[in-house]
């Protein structure tokens, strides 16, 4: 990129790629345009670091704030408070052109590949758009780079794919185009929001493997958001478990999957359907109730109304801090006190 390359990662800098500090992303709810009804606390106090070249997964039920977190990291939502720090600068303080440059450094892969591609553009145009936005004027260069990323996502022959419109591609091909588009500007962070949940089971693994191999080859940081714990083990180094806008547990992937600490994580893992014949014989314990309203979240520990280990007077009165019950394994639960 020609512009003053302010990017989440320029080679040679050590330290985290992205630091998120006490991030809150709230959405104001209004009636008739002026009556304030309150806030939807989609992201409500989240702190973590993303290291270069690692692959992390954000896991949680729908409505737990994973996607809002992703959009805040992309600069699509303004944080209500807290900050996202990249290259020592907070996202909120960036000027328009700096924010644009930052965005070039963050790739975004969405859930619905068909919706993510403008239906009135062909693949050539779709891939050219980000480059035009970022000032790559030479048509030859755009064409060359488009062909290169298409090859990288294993869509070939490029001559056949480039003139096609999204509806002429299969779901898997569409998602590959989305990934290609995300890679065009050579990002250092790739955010994938449930990248395979809308795809046929048969192509899911292919796409996940593709993301994994691209991450390894380009040494980029991959943050993928999922509610599917069963695939996480193979593609992520670290897991963040989110509940009601907060990260309640984080650890290395194997440690977390084998020794879940937080009661919510335990329940989540118990709900995974193992291909095991014994499953038919016993009923699993799934926490009763529904995910809490983000408009009026329960006080203190958000999970306490559903928690089997609820301790009255503590869990509903004081926010649990991040305990470290195992080495490099944090859990926000009073049980570890």
């Amino acid at each position: 990129m020609s512009e003053s390359a302010f990017r989440p990662a320029s080679a040679g800098t050590s330290g985290p790629l992205l630091s998120v500090r006490d991030l809150h992303t709230w959405f104001e709810l209004r009636q008739w345009g002026f009556l304030r009804l309150g806030h939807v606390r989609a992201v409500d106090g989240v702190t973590f670091d993303l290291k270069r070249g690692e692959s992390v997964a954000f896991v949680g039920e729908s409505g737990c704030g994973k996607s809002s977190l992703a959009r805040t990291l992309l600069g699509l939502h303004r944080p209500t408070s807290g900050e996202v720090v990249s290259e020592g600068r907070s996202l909120g303080t960036l000027s328009g052109s700096e924010l644009k440059a930052y965005r070039a450094g963050v790739g975004y892969v969405q859930q619905d590949p068909y919706g993510a591609l403008p239906p009135f553009m062909n693949v050539r145009r779709i891939l050219a758009e980000p480059m035009i936005v970022h000032g790559i004027r030479s048509r030859e260069e755009r064409e060359a780079r488009a062909r290169q990323v298409l090859e990288e996502v294993r869509l070939s022959p490029a001559d056949e794919i480039l003139p096609k419109f999204p509806h002429m591609l299969s779901g898997g091909q569409q998602q590959r185009v989305v990934i290609a588009r995300a890679l065009l500007l050579e990002p250092s962070l790739l955010i994938a929001d449930e990248p395979v949940s809308m795809l046929d089971a048969s192509v899911r693994v292919e796409i996940l493997n593709l993301l994994h191999s691209i991450q390894a080859k380009r040494n980029l940081t991959l943050a993928f958001i999922t509610h599917d714990l069963s695939t996480v083990r193979h593609y992520a180094n670290r897991i963040f478990v989110m509940y009601a806008g907060r990260i309640i547990e984080q650890a290395e992937v194997n440690d977390l999957l084998e020794h879940p600490q937080h009661p919510y994580t335990q329940a989540l893992l118990a709900a995974i359907a193992d291909p095991d014949a014994d499953n038919a014989k016993h009923q699993r314990d799934v926490p009763a109730g529904e995910p809490p309203s983000l408009l009026n979240p329960p006080p203190a520990c958000r999970f306490h109304p559903r928690c089997p280990h609820f301790m009255a007077g503590l869990c509903d009165e004081e926010d649990p801090p991040d305990f470290e019950p195992r080495r490099r394994h944090w859990s926000a639960c009073w049980l570890h006190r």
């Binding site: 440059a101 070039a104 919706g115 591609l117 936005v133």
Partner: peptide, 14 residues
């Protein structure tokens, strides 16, 4: 709210 518009914003379209 179309995803492709969100994508366009994400890659910096004005």
């Amino acid at each position: 709210e179309a995803p492709y518009i969100e994508a366009a914003r994400a890659y910096g379209a004005g």
